[in-house]
Amino acid sequence: MAILEIKHVSKFFGGLAANSDVSFEMEQGMVMGLIGPNGAGKTTLFNCITGYYPPSKGDVVFDGRSMHGLLPDKVCKLGMVRTWQKVRPLAKMSVVDNVMVGALCRTGSLKKARDMAMEQIKVVGLGQRSGFLAGGLPIGERKKLEVARVLATQPKMLLLDEVMGGLNPAESEEIIHLILTIKNLGITQMVIEHDMKAIMRISDRIVVLNSGEKLAEGTPQEIVGNPNVVAAYLGSE
């Protein structure tokens, strides 16, 4: 059974269709790449899935349950969390406190939350930084902090919005490893990314959005060979 079904989702802002009639499904444990030129509606789709915007039309079914009318906090409790393209550290709190906020969604005990947080901090490789203020971290570590924080909510599914954006090749490589590690934990992931090499390596399947519509869907090999996708990125002849 599919863990996530996007059913004919449309989102209009006034007359502008940021998403129009987007449908696809995701299987448990897979990594789905979501790509498309700037303004294609990728982040809008994330917002529709995680409850930030109600879709204008269509429905999102997660784990057999319609997300209709649910706000992000409820969506998180049901096991689906997203990260942000522009990172959102809780700047005046320490790294471990940031991750604890995520963990507290599953427990009321600070001690348990701290243990859960430390575990995830080690998974993303921020073990040396746990006592630092989140606002003082460099961008690469902020991105890792975002991932640790969502992992601490014990999700079934993660939506990662450009976690490699602004990173140098070495840092991107670490994130790629991290995504594959998370996949091995059995957590389903949807990943927005502009780095084509990276997305080809990590994705089991890819959905291409263009001007709010789904342009193509398939394995990385199919997407590379799709003339419509090439046209959308490079312009047609």
Binding site: L71, C76, V81, R88, L90, D97, G102, L104, G108, V150
Partner: peptide, 23 residues
């Protein structure tokens, strides 16, 4: 307490707090 963590998370970034399961 949990309240204190949630309060500060809301102060620091409402969207982030919301996405982490805070009503």
């Amino acid at each position: 307490s949990k309240l204190g963590y949630y309060f500060q998370a809301i102060r620091e970034d409402q969207d982030a707090a919301h996405s982490l399961g805070i009503n």
